[in-house]
């Protein structure tokens, strides 16, 4: 039995449908990221699970128990807020102890568990500080400790790294992952940052218009995007429009034929091709190759991004690795090629 089961969840705010008959299962001890743009429904999903919003239809089942009508304070799960929502009038220790106190945990045990929680997030000795005397990163840890101190089996995290600056984000991300393994709790983390989603999760659920459009392991979702939206949202793949013709896929924009590894689903109208899977192949001919002119070259450190105007008029993003030598200069004519396995037919 999954730890958390969402069945046909719908939620409407005025004219907009935030959740649209959404189904999702989360296993115990799993790290799941909900990835989506603004308005995709990812935050609403979290708020419905936490009980702050009631779904218009559908059910939230936690270990098989229907949570509809159960108020937030009676739900056996915890949430970490994007703003951290630390209580400004309570010191760090009292913030962390808050949930234990509400549960009637005796004072002595409370103190011990607060100490443990502080040690867990590396904030020993900070118990007496007030939240406004902490740095952003420290506040984030207090919020995390407060949400974990009750040892929930399910923790909801709303953009937990969103307020941190870039170099702190990576480190905190690893710590989050380590904490999740250590506590064995299932984490559902909302994020709009695709790298964060891919780096931390066991599984990624990509949300669009209140529905899960793709669910899977990060590598699988990245390599085999199911729809145009997923392909472009994750790693900005080239989406090539065209139509199936025999075993191949005719793409007028490239003036070329793409040939995927397996059979092309009938009625395919678009294929995805990752920039880093396209290579310069002078003299390449036939399917899975195309010609064009380099329009722009952008150095990105570990590689260069080329914008190549294909013979059919489409603009192709091409990743050029540093170890392949200097990138071709602007204005030069190039031949491009790729493996059949890199051609991903899209369903929608």
């Amino acid at each position: 039995m999954p730890l958390l089961s969402l069945r046909g969840l719908s939620k409407r705010f005025g004219q907009t449908l935030a959740l649209d008959r959404l189904d999702l299962d989360v296993a115990a001890g799993e790290f799941l990221t909900l990835l989506g743009g603004s308005g995709s429904g990812k935050s609403t999903l979290l708020r419905v699970v936490a009980g702050f919003e009631a779904a218009d239809a559908g059910a939230v089942l936690l270990e098989g128990r229907d949570l509809s009508g159960v108020p937030p304070h009676a739900r056996p799960l915890n949430m970490m807020f994007q703003s951290y929502a630390l209580f400004p009038h309570l010191n760090v220790a009292a913030n962390i102890a808050y949930g234990l106190k509400r549960d009637g945990v005796p004072r002595a045990e409370r103190a011990g568990r607060v100490e443990q929680a502080l040690a867990m997030v590396g904030l020993e000795g900070f118990g007496g500080r007030l939240p406004h005397r902490l740095s952003g990163g420290q506040r984030q840890r207090v919020a995390l400790a407060r949400a974990l101190v009750k040892r929930p089996r399910l923790l909801l995290l709303d953009e937990p790294l969103g307020a941190l600056d870039a170099n702190l984000r990576e480190r905190t991300g690893f710590e989050l992952r380590a904490l999740q393994r250590e506590t064995g709790a299932a984490f559902i983390m909302v994020t709009h940052d695709q790298q964060e989603a891919l780096a931390l999760a066991d599984r990624v659920a990509v949300l669009e218009h209140g529905r899960v459009v793709q669910l899977g392991a990060p590598r699988a979702v990245y390599d085999r995007p199911a729809t145009r939206f997923v392909a472009q949202f994750l790693g900005t793949a080239n989406v090539l429009e065209g139509r199936a013709a025999g075993e191949g896929f005719d793409c007028p924009g490239l003036a070329a034929t793409l040939r995927p590894e397996g059979a092309l689903p009938p009625g395919t109208t678009a294929c995805a091709l990752r920039p880093e899977r396209i290579a310069l192949r002078p003299g390449a001919q036939g399917p899975n190759s195309a010609g064009g002119v380099v329009e722009e070259v952008a150095f990105r450190g570990d590689d260069s991004l080329l914008l190549v105007r294909a013979e059919g008029g489409a603009l192709l993003r091409v990743g050029h690795a540093e170890e392949d030598g200097p990138p071709p200069p602007r204005g030069s004519a190039v031949r491009l090629g790729w493996e059949a396995a890199s051609v991903v037919p899209l369903a929608g």
Partner: peptide
């Protein structure tokens, strides 16, 4: 911040305790 009261509820506080 309305999240403050939600956080309290999430940690097990009844509406009166919040």
């Amino acid at each position: 911040d309305p999240a403050m009261e939600e956080a309290a509820a999430d940690l097990g506080a009844t509406p009166w305790a919040v």
